[in-house]
Amino acid sequence: MTDAAGKPAIISMRGLRKSYGVGTPVETEVLHGIDADLAEGEFCALIGPSGSGKSTLLNLIGLLEPPTAGELSVAGQSTTGLNEQALTVLRGRHIGFVFQFHHLLPAFTALENVMMPAIIAHGVATAEDEAVAHDLLARVGLSSHEYKKAGQLSGGQQQRVAIARALSLSPRLILADEPTGNLDTHTADDIFALLREFNRERGSACLIVTHDPRLAARCDRRIELVDGRLAASTSVAEPA
């Protein structure tokens, strides 16, 4: 559990707060000051009851929306005061997403979906991008489904494409929001195993939101949220 000890933090959160409806009568604070770190290559579960703010925290870390207060650093870079363009670059370069509802682009084939982060980053797909995509789809066992449109795949297959896509630019951080949430136990185990495999192999840190205690137990560490706060059991950083 301590194999990643001493490594620099890929994410660092200090006093992170998030409110919705700021300036309106329905203003509500969802996250009430989060202090936590995630080390490079760490494989960490984010757990907590529904509505505790797990997705919100993941979206903040993923730079999809800004915190209301507090300090967030990604890959050693403070994100405070960065404009949308800079945030987009940081996100594209370092972060891969896997969502609960797989969220593939339905108009594109499995292969094109996996290449998409590279197409976005490079402007146009290169031969190397394609080779990487073929490779990743082979790794998730979908070589024979490369040219199928996303909608023609089963839920488990779509989630595997989504994982391959999240890995396409070998990001240092993978954020997965209930990646196995609507899959059967067997398929969920497969998907989880895949994430674990890539984590070990490539050293991509993973932060995985899950409701499944079995899966959470198989992570290096668990961060628990309760009503927008870290649960008492959670340590700020990886245990040394």
Binding site: G62, T88, L105, I120
Partner: peptide, 9 residues
């Protein structure tokens, strides 16, 4: 999805 994958607005 495209935004999450690094596409600017």
């Amino acid at each position: 999805i495209l935004r999450a994958m690094g596409t600017s607005s």
